[in-house]
Write a protein that binds this DNA or RNA. Structure first.
Lengths: 241, 241
DNA sequence: CGGTCTCTTGAGCAGAGTCAATGAACGTGG
DNA sequence: CCACGTTCATTGACTCTGCTCAAGAGACCG
């Protein structure tokens, strides 16, 4: 029998978090889902919607965002390939935020009821999804700290460190360099600064030889220095959980 | 047979989130736990620790907090009675933050392995705990927005609105008034401001007749006005989920 | 009654925002 | 291949919200 490569990708992700049995794998293989391509900046989820599917990001980047009544935007997380992007919809009916594609992206939209069923009845799958969700929550907490208590240089540096680590883990590399598919305005929305100030901070970081930039390609030149200057401690990513 | 009032409280909480069967209740009634009183400002959980218990807050207030290397503190959530305060420890080994008591508090510390077992094998209990955790994550997201994109007046007002709603729900009241057991310094740590500025903001809100204060008793005088001024929309609390 | 912790208030400062203009990169159609 | 329009990045000048420093007043406690 031919295996569906998309479901196998999802299985690998879940298996990386918990010991899944052959029956667990079989159960995942029967999940109803549909694959979809998303154009940059289009919405995957809108605040107030009641989605019946739960997306898994296969390729591309997304971000999670909320708007204030003043029209200001705050990005509350950035999603990279290989992540479940709305586990919330498994158990909460209404979305409390928006999710948009940053680049062209591919997602597998899994039937929420079916995935919820697996999460509740198959302990290994349940545990894996719990871990995914709880690490996500931990990252939210760190972002509150970032935006609430760090100065502009550390905020931007911290975000770059986080992305470097998460991308290196996801790609099984140790590059500390990556293509950052965000405008400076979006970066500002992620760290609570204006685009003008993000620009000044980025060049200040480059001037201090902590990073180098070429278009939107970011290389961290001095990891230890940037990590220290940005108060970055990867504990909150629970890499060894 | 005599029922343990503490476990019954926990059962009621879980039952408010999902339809639990009599077997589910029986299973909860056999959870190993110990009750403990906590003095103000003492720690329930420390960053880096590997707790084997998961606390449920029976009375009193707690806050969740992280420190930067500069020594700045950011409070990332405030916990009120009736909440599970570290569901993270069910599935993540190491704590990424500190939890401290705000007032004298009572907690039931439940054996994490036993509760995890229930979460994974009893669908109703699992669903209830998922909902608890996901609402917590939603509140983290809103706090990122609060600290990242709102001005000082809105930030403080937003926090007061959130606490008023959560406490009214928990106590089944509609007072819009509550005792806020926090110093202005702690308030500042929750909204990313200095205590001096929190002080000015609080008196400005009082001067605009949005709130009144007597010691640490807060009354919201004009709910609609404060809600609008603070950009508060309770959707993120998922009250009807 | 003294000590300590909070709360208040004022004065001056500075980090980040605003406004505005210029320049570079990129996609598109001719 | 080039002209053009759009989006994004960069820079300067100026402003302002919120911070720092510091001192005094209340509240609470043993």
């Amino acid at each position: 029998m031919q295996l569906d490569p998309i479901l196998e990708t999802i299985i690998r992700r879940i298996a990386s978090r918990a010991r899944v049995s052959e029956e667990d794998r079989t159960a995942i293989r029967s999940l109803p889902y549909s694959a979809r391509a998303i154009e940059p900046s289009s919405y995957l989820v809108r605040e107030g919607a009641q989605p019946s599917r739960c997306a898994f990001l296969l390729s591309g980047f997304c971000y999670r965002q909320k708007l204030t009544s003043e029209g200001a935007r705050q990005i509350v997380s950035i999603e990279i390939p290989g992540e479940f992007i709305d586990l919330h919809h498994l158990f909460l009916t209404e979305s409390d935020h928006n999710v948009q594609a940053l680049t062209r992206a591919h997602v597998a939209e899994i039937d929420a009821a079916a995935l919820r069923e697996l999460a509740l009845t198959r302990p290994a799958i349940g545990a894996a999804l719990w871990i995914e969700a709880l690490i996500g929550a931990s990252i939210f907490r760190e972002w509150i700290v970032n935006v609430g208590r760090r100065d502009a240089h550390s905020r931007v540096g911290h975000l770059l460190c986080e992305l470097a680590v998460r991308l290196d883990i996801a790609n099984d590399t140790t590059n500390r360099a990556f293509d950052l598919p965000m405008t400076q305005e979006q970066l500002g929305d992620a760290v609570g600064l204006t685009p003008v100030h993000v620009n000044r901070v980025l060049r200040a970081l480059a001037a201090r030889n902590l990073i180098s930039r070429d278009r939107r390609q970011i290389s961290i030149l001095d990891w230890d220095a940037l990590r220290d200057a940005s108060d970055f401690n990867p504990r909150y990513l629970h890499l060894t959980a």
